[in-house]
Design a protein around this nucleic acid. Sequence first.
DNA 1: AGCTCATGGCGAG
DNA 2: TCGCCCTGAGCTG
Length: 270
Amino acid sequence: MPEGHTIHRLAQDHAERFAGRPVSVRSPQGKFSDSAALLDGLVLDEVDAHAKHLFLGFAETGWIHIHLGLFGKYTLGETPAPPPTDTVRLRLVSDTHYSDLRGPTTCALITDAEKQAIHDRLGPDPLRNGDDPDRAWRRISRSRTTVAALLMDQKIIGGVGNVYRAEVLFRHGIDPYTTGKDLTPDEWTAIWTDLVALMREGVRHNRIDTVRPEHTPEAMGRPPRVDDHGGEVYVYRRATMPCHLCGTEIRTASLAARNLFWCPGCQPPR
DNA sequence: AGCTCATGGCGAG
DNA sequence: TCGCCCTGAGCTG
């Protein structure tokens, strides 16, 4: 689940359901108990998100910094909350809603300065209004690293994960092994603009869909397909299956310990 | 019951 | 580049 769109959606949902009201803060699992005790009953007054980092602000006391990592998951619902299971790291409860966090890489109480340090080491985020794509381009355009690796580097661009990486490169016909230096300014502009649109859609629908309307199974007169992660995509996790557009077998490779997917037909080497 | 894998990221070497 | 941390689903047996 967790790419940038997931975190921005969680920020929205938390702002709507918990902000401006006192909330009960607990850690049934125990690993966040000390901080939870400090925050319990305070008003949650601000929510922020940058890349894959979520921040829940409690005025003078500080921020809960949350990073889901690969396994972290949220469950949101209406009160009454069910009895918490022993893997719930953080439970928030307002008079109307509850939220349960399980398996995060990070759930810690931090200061304003510590929060700022996190923003400082993250690249521009397509989901943060006003973030400047030129900051990313300055680093990409002089890098000999592959664009596939650069898109996943959170210092360069914030919020893109393995699905958006594969899909945005497919949508622009870019071979993932193209180096940053070889990418054209127009290609970068197209990638950034597309990420802004795709990820906003991702926040709205709470899932990743990247297939253009003219390429949906209905539009192409093919049987409907169901991708096992819940969204409609071109290449992600479709290794050895035929490309929806050209029929070439989708390829996969390991790049920086992550699975990369691309269509050699639609994304030819330079 | 035990294994593998997953949309992340960190630190050691 | 590797090992490690966090959890749960989907296999295998």
